[in-house]
Design a protein around this nucleic acid. Structure first.
Lengths: 272, 272
DNA sequence: ACCTGAACACCGTTCAAGT
DNA sequence: ACCTGAACACCGTTCAAGT
């Protein structure tokens, strides 16, 4: 996805073949084996797929290569996964699920939160952590068709939506306002995180393709665009983290305003 | 992308084979031919790819099928397009380019606009028109790696970014504020439009898979989620158009506030 | 100049056969 | 019970050969 197909297929077929198969051949009884530690398993396969995409990109993931990563022929995977499309759905599900485990202290705790603002902030940071940890997987989280039409990426599980709505309603939001908040919040998250992750992809693909003399290329490109070339130093700055925090705070302010107006004016607030 | 792989390959191979090849075989001199009217051409190929994706989905697009749509073997395409990846880049570029042609009156006119607010509104509506016209193409617009790291989808052309920045600067924005506005605006557009387009995909894939008894399925699913089942009628409503307009107006308000504060307090506004 | 046939290396997926 | 070999129908892409 981040490279042209030529490069992808050439490079990955080199990268992929060796690394883990060797370990298997060295001896099945060895202690520190990463792969095939105790027969296959749906979860093991999904995790291997995530690792593979993180390392080689989505386009390079094939059933055959994934199999060889696990020390097994591709056909063996079909015992645990109905097919490639379902595998990708499983990858998305599993990545989103990591919201709940192994938090380094101050991230999302879906239960045991204090107030809806706190919940929204933790959830946003948790999703952002996932996006940055798996930038090549996130586009799948963003654009696979969801289970129901009202499940809005990247908040892709019923459990998550339930806890979102529940928290806001406990916080004093009407059903209407909670739903409106869910919509605004998911748009905000999706837009920011997908942009951030796409930028990472762009950096990588630029490094892959020096494209002749980059300096000359850039100069001729920008010459025709005065505003672009004048503001280029500003545009080049990476403000993604600050941008994210500002947009998040702005959204929280808006929601707080909606909530208080609803309380003071007796309920009917239309729809955010 | 919207269907499982089984269905996609089965169905499309049926749909694709006949329609346009027949016309060619009827007689190359015939008047009303849609395909192969005067030899191939890069633009003709890109347009055929767009039509194909709109009709059959991205996953179904192969060089061979696209060729047969144009009355030609796949190998002939390589005279005009370096490969499949480049073809997709061309598709994205061409779709975004339709911002400027064939406007039905009140849409984007990149020149000859009156004020930056008007420009932003027209641009937003123009991009939304594109997304809804090509819902299966838009995910490509959203997530292909951009030419430069600071080109933010869906505003994917230097020309477009140039006109955006130029319009805002003419409107009184500082360089910093214009760049900040560009970032906020692109996040807003990307989030909303990708969500809208994903929902369309979800509807389609639901129709494809009745999944046994949908009524029973839904009931058992929702039983464990009280907030979800209570608000389900609200969640099910399609508010995408209104949502879009509200978010757009909210963004314009924010930008106007920033602009006026900057004027009154002598310039230094940090970064939006 | 423009297209095709044949070929190559690779896919996803199925299924009978091995252990 | 779990994996593999062989096979099938399809890919993207190259290139010599046809017209």
């Amino acid at each position: 996805m981040a490279t042209t197909s030529d490069q992808t297929s050439d490079r990955t077929s080199d990268d992929v073949r060796d690394p883990d198969l060797v370990a298997v051949q060295e001896g099945p009884e060895a202690a520190g084996e990463l792969t095939r530690s105790a027969g296959l398993d749906r979860e093991k396969i999904l995790q291997a797929a995530i690792d593979f995409i993180d390392e080689h990109g989505l386009a390079a993931l094939t059933m055959r290569r994934l199999g060889s990563t696990l020390g097994v022929e591709a056909m063996a995977l079909y015992r645990y996964v109905p097919g490639r499309e379902d595998l990708l759905d499983g990858v998305v599900e599993r990545v989103v699920e990591t919201l709940w485990d192994d938090q380094d202290g101050d991230d999302v705790q879906i239960v045991d939160h204090s107030g809806w603002q706190d919940y929204l902030v933790r959830l946003a940071h948790g999703m952002r952590r996932i996006a940055l940890a798996h930038p090549a997987v996130f586009p799948l989280v963003a654009s696979r068709p969801p289970a129901a039409p009202w499940v809005r990426p990247p908040l892709r599980s019923l459990r998550l939506v339930e806890s979102f709505l529940g928290t806001l309603c406990e916080g004093g939001f009407s059903d209407q306002a909670a739903v409106a908040a869910y919509r605004a919040y998911s748009s905000f998250l999706l837009g920011h995180l997908l942009l951030e992750v796409t930028q990472i992809g762009a950096q990588v693909s630029l490094l892959d393709q020096p494209e002749g003399d980059p300096q000359a290329q850039r100069e001729t490109d920008l010459a025709r665009y005065p505003n672009l070339s004048r503001t280029e130093p500003l545009l080049g700055q990476d403000r993604s983290a600050a941008e994210f925090e500002e947009a998040l705070e702005n959204l929280l302010d808006r929601l707080e305003r909606v909530l208080h107006e609803a309380k003071n004016s007796g309920g009917d607030i239309g729809d955010l």
